[in-house]
């Protein structure tokens, strides 16, 4: 189990993390979401020993993640980092050696990964001559080459075309199947929803929601009601008690109901305007969950 526990960090006056904690089970994928500047990168950098936390720690298999055990972590920084003038194969082998493989094993493993990620023909090219997508693959190869026990990836999907996204997703799922816990941050919430077993949403330095997508959904479900009333005059729902209009366009209305509001009262009001072509509780997408969680005022933090 990979545990992030009570991480706090301030840079000068700015408090970036105020007690961030979550756990990732072996063989599961954890999607780490949050607005820009929420502290995702800082959290990951703390795990990699690049930033010293003011409090809290990161544990792997119950033991503090230190310089030695970090060598068993595959890491992809947010700002991609490779030597531009070094050849692909040599570069991957170099990182394998830094992670403790001996020369022969490093060369062999580098060859395997370069081949596996479809870079076989580019092995002897300088990294700077590769397309961005291919550079990204080299970056992934550098993270995977030492057969890490844990993967921590900061925005691994950013800048990839759909084909690149699919092949990276496939590679990560392959790692998960081998029992590796994978943590990655992303702004592409559809992707997080599709790939991740569990999700954490970071806002204002705290985890405002963690759990499986399903759990988060259940928590939010029953609050948003979509009603389509083509004949209604604009503002038809404004006077209804216990509801708030989230959006309204040509009769397509999204309403947020207070916990004790009866949905049948809303239906009655809708019918009075004329035809009702759609009336259903909305299944929130992760995007909506995210918006809700991030918009919630500080202190209203809930864990599903």
């Amino acid at each position: 189990m990979l545990e992030f526990d009570g991480l706090r960090k301030s840079f000068g006056e700015v408090r970036v993390l105020e007690g961030v904690g979550f756990t990732v089970q072996p063989g599961s994928m954890f999607g780490f979401c949050g607005s820009n500047g929420a502290g995702k990168t800082t959290t990951m950098r703390i795990a990699m020993g690049l930033v010293r936390p003011d409090a809290g720690e990161v544990r792997w298999r119950g033991r503090l993640l230190d310089q030695a055990s970090r060598r068993r972590v595959g890491y992809m920084p947010e700002e991609r980092g490779l030597y531009p003038k070094m050849k692909v194969g040599e570069q991957v082998a170099y990182f394998a050696r830094l992670h403790g493989l001996d020369a022969a094993a490093a060369t062999r493993a580098a060859g395997e990964w370069v081949e596996r990620l479809g870079l076989g023909a580019r092995r002897d090219e300088q990294v700077e001559k590769l397309s961005l997508g291919n550079q990204q693959r080299v970056q992934l190869a550098a993270a995977l080459v030492s057969r890490p026990e844990v993967l921590i990836l900061d925005e691994p999907f950013s800048g990839l075309d759909p084909v690149g996204v699919d092949s990276l997703a496939e590679a990560l799922l392959g790692q998960v199947r081998e029992g590796v816990p994978v943590v990655f941050s992303s702004h592409q919430l559809d992707l997080v929803e599709r790939l991740c077993d569990s999700v954490g949403i970071l806002a204002r330095g705290r985890m405002v929601a963690t759990g499986t997508v399903e759990e988060l959904r259940r928590r939010e479900a029953g609050r948003l009601l979509r009603v389509v009333v083509p004949d209604a005059a604009p503002g038809w729902a404004d006077g209804l008690g216990g509801t708030r209009v989230v959006s309204e366009r040509a009769g397509d209305t999204l309403l947020e109901l207070a916990p004790d509001t009866d949905d049948q009262t809303v239906l009655g009001a809708a019918l009075r305007t004329g035809r009702v072509t759609h009336f259903a509780w909305q299944q929130p997408t992760l995007v909506e969950l995210f918006r809700g969680a991030v918009a919630a005022p500080a202190g209203a933090e809930v864990a599903a």
Binding site: R45, L50, R80
Partner: peptide, 17 residues
């Protein structure tokens, strides 16, 4: 500077001091 500007230093410092 090359290591800094290419950000490879972050990857390096994850494995060494």
């Amino acid at each position: 500077v090359e290591e800094k500007s290419s950000r490879v230093v972050e990857l390096l410092l994850a494995t060494m001091r």
